[in-house]
Design a protein around this nucleic acid. Structure first.
Length: 488
RNA sequence: GGUACCGUGGCCGAGUGGCUAGGCGGAGGUCUGCAAAACCUUACACAGCGGUUCGAAUCCGCUCGGUACCUCCA
């Protein structure tokens, strides 16, 4: 009964059996980054979380279409749907075209995600490339009576919508509470209610990014792109929509509202949300300015880092926590992850040296079963990793002669181990250094040893080193400046 | 104030009614020229107070503490 995949659905607050709408096809949409700055540790979490979902669903035999957007239309820096947009602000600061900003940070984001060994999405649409689809969606909402125009801008009529549907079903909010709890915001005169959100904004003359529309020269509202592009590539109703918990409200809530207003039904069957990464117990985020970029982790160049941390260390660190739990960052925790991952790889390699026995004392099939149960239980990667450590322990014991494995089980263990470690968890061993660098280093060491022998007038050893290297076409030449070497 | 959630050993982090989570770190030992790895043993826990139960880290209530969202944020 535990052998079926269950996914925690934010909409129902329960783990639900995963049943795709159109098997074997699965449609998954994940909110991608707004490209106006380098990706930080927080961005790695949805990247990795939904990479695991993507990999596992494919492993189960589903044909998955994974859509992750790039938000490259400037949305607003601050509250109240007024003011300067984020990309424009960056462009002004750096004296660049907005699209130069977009291109630069999109490339950097891709590079970071590649380093983290996440598989590229099937489709990666940009908001700026789907202005027409967004305008069409606004038209539908307007036609159905859930939007109003106000001086060239269009707003979603939340109050009207809430009478026919229910605004707040995802986040558990009630419209009455929203009324009372909304902050005093400036520049809201155009809205009927403070909680109404923009579908289309008229651009003021200084605004750099704008497009023509039936209502004004302007730009689309923030929540619109995901609704429009999700529907375009995955259909009006699709299986999974993912993103960070901080997008739950108002972003995803508004997506649901827009879809219902346009089509009359919900857009998504399973809503998945990854939790936040914290630093000193607080959310790591742009606004708190307490974030560390992935680049800084990989190079070690940040004041709170004492060394570089490899992309796989970051990946393993993230996978050691369940995606719905907060994860507290510290260098101590990262070091523990680094060592733990090394231990797993070492055990896998040690498998080559385990002597086959007539019988097996380790139950590999049971561990395999537990691994699948853990994955099926809402992608419980920390449990999977714990089982892999058990497997590593079994291998080490077999090597030490305390347990035994048959030839067949050794092969099976290798397959199981690498399948989970490499294919499903997406980890890889980065230990291999650049070959030329390694050879330089080895030759330097060998030459030092030979010099040491020569100093002791141990010419037999010195000659032996030279002759052995010659067999590999490496030539040693003793010069006035010391020994030199080259390939013959 | 509203909504959602959390509080597990030195650190990170699973577990949701009875059976060792796991990793890192610590202590002792085996092995060993030294070191590392591996192996063995071991200490350290479920925020507090009540309740339900034969039995609770796990369910319920209260208290204390913390976080996220309610404005851009993964």
């Amino acid at each position: 009964m535990e052998d079926k995949l269950k996914i925690y659905n934010t909409l129902s607050h329960k783990k639900e059996l995963f049943e795709p709408l159109n098997p074997p096809h699965v449609g998954m949409y994940v909110c991608g980054p707004t490209v106006y700055g380098d990706a930080h540790l927080g961005h790695a979490r949805p990247g990795i979380t939904f990479d695991i979902v993507f990999r596992y669903l494919k492993h189960l035999g589903y044909k998955v279409r994974y859509v992750r957007n790039i938000t490259d239309v400037g949305h607003l820096v601050n509250d109240a749907d007024t003011g300067e947009d984020k990309i424009q602000k960056k462009a002004r600061l750096e004296e660049l075209e907005p699209m130069e900003i977009v291109k630069y940070y999109t490339d950097r984001y891709h590079e970071n995600m590649r380093q983290l060994n996440t598989l590229p999405p099937s489709i990666e649409p940009t908001a700026s490339g789907h202005i027409i689809e967004q305008i069409e969606l606004v038209k539908k909402i307007l036609k159905n009576g859930y939007a109003y125009e106000s001086d060239g801008s269009l707003y979603f009529d939340v109050e009207k919508y809430n009478k026919d549907y229910r605004y707040g079903k995802l986040s558990g909010r009630r419209i009455e509470d929203l009324l009372h709890n909304t902050h005093e915001l400036a520049g809201q005169e155009e809205k009927h209610n403070a909680f109404d959100f923009a579908l289309w904004k008229k651009a003021d003359p200084s605004h750099l990014m704008h497009w023509p529309s039936p209502w004004s020269e302007g730009y689309p509202g923030w929540h619109l792109e995901c609704s429009a592009m999700g529907a375009k590539y995955l259909g009006e109703t699709f299986d999974i929509h993912g993103g960070g918990m901080d997008l739950l409200f108002p972003h995803h809530e508004s997506e649901i509202a827009q879809a219902n207003a346009a089509t009359g039904h919900d857009p998504v069957k399973y809503w998945m949300h990854n939790n936040m990464i914290t630093i000193n117990g607080q959310k790591m985020g742009k606004s708190l300015k307490n974030f560390i970029t992935l680049e800084e982790f990989f190079t070690g160049k940040h004041k709170s880092l004492d060394q570089p941390y490899a992309p796989m260390t970051i990946r393993f660190f993230i996978l050691q926590a369940h995606y719905r739990s907060t994860l507290d960052f510290s260098t101590e925790a990262l070091k523990a992850a680094e060592k733990g991952l090394r231990k797993l790889f070492d055990a896998l390699y040690l498998l080559d040296d385990v002597k086959p026995a007539a019988t097996s004392s380790v139950n590999i099939k049971l561990i395999e079963e537990k691994c699948y149960q853990s994955m099926n239980d809402d992608f419980n990667t920390p449990m999977v990793i714990a089982h892999l450590f058990d497997l590593a322990h079994g291998i080490n014991q077999a090597y030490a002669g305390k347990e035994s494995l048959t030839q067949e089980d050794i092969a099976y263990t290798r397959k199981l181990f690498s399948s989970f470690l490499f294919d499903l968890l997406g980890l890889k061993d980065e230990k291999e250094k650049d070959d030329s660098q390694l050879i330089e280093y080895l030759m330097k060491t060998i030459i030092e040893i030979r010099q040491e022998a020569k100093n002791k007038k141990d010419y037999a050893t010195a000659d032996m080193i030279r002759e052995e290297l010659a067999k590999m076409d490496i030539q040693i030449k003793d010069t006035k400046e010391g020994a030199k070497w080259n390939f013959k």
